[in-house]
Computed example of a mutant assay.
Amino acid sequence: MRILVIEDDAGIAANLYDYLEHTGYEVDLASNGLAGLQLALSQPWDAILLDLSLPGMDGLALCRKLREEARRDTPVLMLTAKDTLDDKLSGFTHGADDYLVKPFSLKEVGARLGALIKRYKGQVAQGILCCADVRLDLATLTVMRAGRQLKLPPKCLQLLRILMQSPARVFSRVELETQVWGEALGDSDTLRAHVYTLRRALTAPGETNLIETVHGLGYRFVAGRADAE
């Protein structure tokens, strides 16, 4: 998933960049409002971290242009040192989705970003992931492909959920091992064996293999026909 950070404080920007990249996001930076707006409009983003006080154009004006003029609904988490109720209400009025006061915890930034992105993608409301012809119900852990129900071991279900939540994104082996097993991973073949099991369960004769090995990098869920080709 792709995050745009618009922040003029070099130290804060660097900390956010390092933390989010380590968490698995693809991150880009802008250090002023004009450059930030241009980047926000030129590429698709899963969320934007937006500082309130920016040179060139402040965060409120940028957010208003993003919403009212460009008609973009990308989730915006506003970052600011101003903590009064009026300041927060002003941020929401101009189109921010959430508001975080400096100094903040990087873990809280990550948690709020994750919640915003889930709501934006409809995962909180519906609790269902749909990619290609696979449907995963997050409440019941029911997996369907092309109308048939699949039975998956718990770890394979976790792998499938992670891959489907960011279709087409390449997950490194280390990322997947850490998210599924933490520090309890047995050996280097454990992930490979579970991916093999997941593929066999997902793929009936004549169907496309949806779990692709990206050699030297990791694995990804093939999101559609263009990816499969």
Results as ranks from 00 to 15, higher is better:
P103L: 10
R145T: 02
Q149I: 09
I128W: 00
D137A: 12
L79H: 09
L52G: 02
D86G: 02
V174N: 12
D86E: 13
D133V: 00
L113A: 01
T74F: 06
C131L: 07
G122H: 01
I128C: 00
T142L: 01
L157G: 00
L152F: 03
K65A: 13
R67S: 09
K155G: 02
L106R: 05
D46N: 15
E108S: 06
W45N: 07
D58Q: 10
L77S: 07
E175S: 06
A96L: 05
F171W: 13
A168R: 12
G114W: 05
T178A: 13
P154N: 11
G95V: 03
P154F: 00
L141S: 14
Q158L: 13
L54R: 05
L66T: 09
A139C: 10
L100I: 10
P103A: 11
F171D: 00
W181T: 04
I162L: 15
K107M: 14
K82Y: 12
D187L: 05
G147L: 09
R112F: 04
R119M: 12
K118M: 11
D187P: 11
L136K: 08
H94I: 00
R169T: 14
L113D: 05
T93C: 05
P103K: 08
V76N: 11
C156M: 14
A115M: 11
R169F: 02
E108N: 08
G110S: 15
E108L: 13
V124S: 14
R148F: 02
R67Y: 08
T84S: 15
M144F: 09
A96H: 02
